[in-house]
Design a binder for these strands. Structure first.
Length: 268
DNA sequence: ATGGCTTTAAAATAAAGA
């Protein structure tokens, strides 16, 4: 714009944060936004209906938002600093009966951003696990549509899948859990094989990076965590990946979520 | 060994999370 290289070297940060209740977490959320200043923040488990979303409080710290809420459970939102996300769609095709608020997609600054809260699926086997696997198929279908548009895109959020044994402190601890089942992992692998890049996995090929620590059993002080919050980048965006990481320290604060934020930085 | 927390909704417990 001004004839220097500054524009092409500038970066853009997109983060995801499962807040585990936006009402209880609002002070921590605002703290994190103020301290890390992501350009976009995708939130999961806001656990509020639409009219309970704290849009005014977020606007005070510079973020405009769109959100898809639901009473008590689930709920997703996309925040952008200094601009309002342009909503593309909410919810996935393929199940007219599904009323769970888990998918929200928007355009921000030339990027297509899908914020997801993938079903947990426990206990397995059972209807909740079947719903999880069906939901992953529906997600794959939507991601194929996005890929066909050949836009720089990322699908970011809480996938509730531990991709590999090196993504958990002890694979035996969750061996029977829906997050670790071969079917869950196969569905995840299909997304990656379709051309989407797991940013954090790519930059940490030996694993050992966690994004979640249970509230119970001293999981946080013992560092008994696992990796379930992911960012999948389309080929057009993967080429622009500069860095990615976990804001781990926020898991250790008072009244923290059980998830830590995950971020990716791309060339603008 | 087994550890047992946190949220929401709503009025004491129950459901869900992962």
């Amino acid at each position: 714009m001004n004839g220097t290289a500054a524009g092409s070297n500038a970066s853009f940060t997109i983060a995801t944060f499962n807040v585990n209740g936006i009402k209880a977490r609002l002070p921590r959320l605002i703290e994190w936004l103020d301290e890390t200043r992501p350009d976009v923040a995708c939130l999961q488990e806001i656990k509020t209906q639409d009219d309970g979303f704290p849009a005014a409080e977020l606007a005070e710290v510079g973020y405009q938002a769109i959100w898809h809420g639901q009473k008590s459970f689930n709920g997703v939102a996309i925040l952008a600093r200094g601009t309002t996300p342009v909503e593309v769609r909410r919810g996935l095709d393929g199940d007219a009966e599904d009323e769970q608020a888990r998918y929200l997609e928007a355009d921000v600054a030339g990027l297509r951003i899908a914020c997801i809260y993938l079903p947990n699926g426990n206990p397995q086997p059972g209807p909740k696990f079947a719903y999880k696997l069906r939901w992953m198929e529906r997600l794959a279908a939507r991601m194929a549509q996005i890929a066909a548009e050949e836009v720089p895109a990322l699908v970011i959020g809480d996938y509730n899948v531990v991709p590999a044994d090196h993504d958990i402190w002890d694979r035996r601890a969750l061996a029977d859990d829906a997050l670790m089942q071969p079917e869950s992992r196969a569905a995840w692998a299909r997304l990656c094989h379709a051309g989407w890049t797991d940013a954090l996995g790519l930059h940490n090929p030996r694993g050992g990076v966690w994004t979640y620590w249970d509230y119970q059993a001293g999981a946080w002080p013992r560092d008994h965590g696992f990796r379930i919050d992911h960012a999948l980048l389309s080929p057009e965006l993967a080429d622009r990946l500069q860095a990615c990481g976990v804001d781990k320290a926020f898991r250790g604060r008072e009244k923290a979520s059980d998830h830590a934020p995950v971020w990716v930085r791309v060339t603008r």
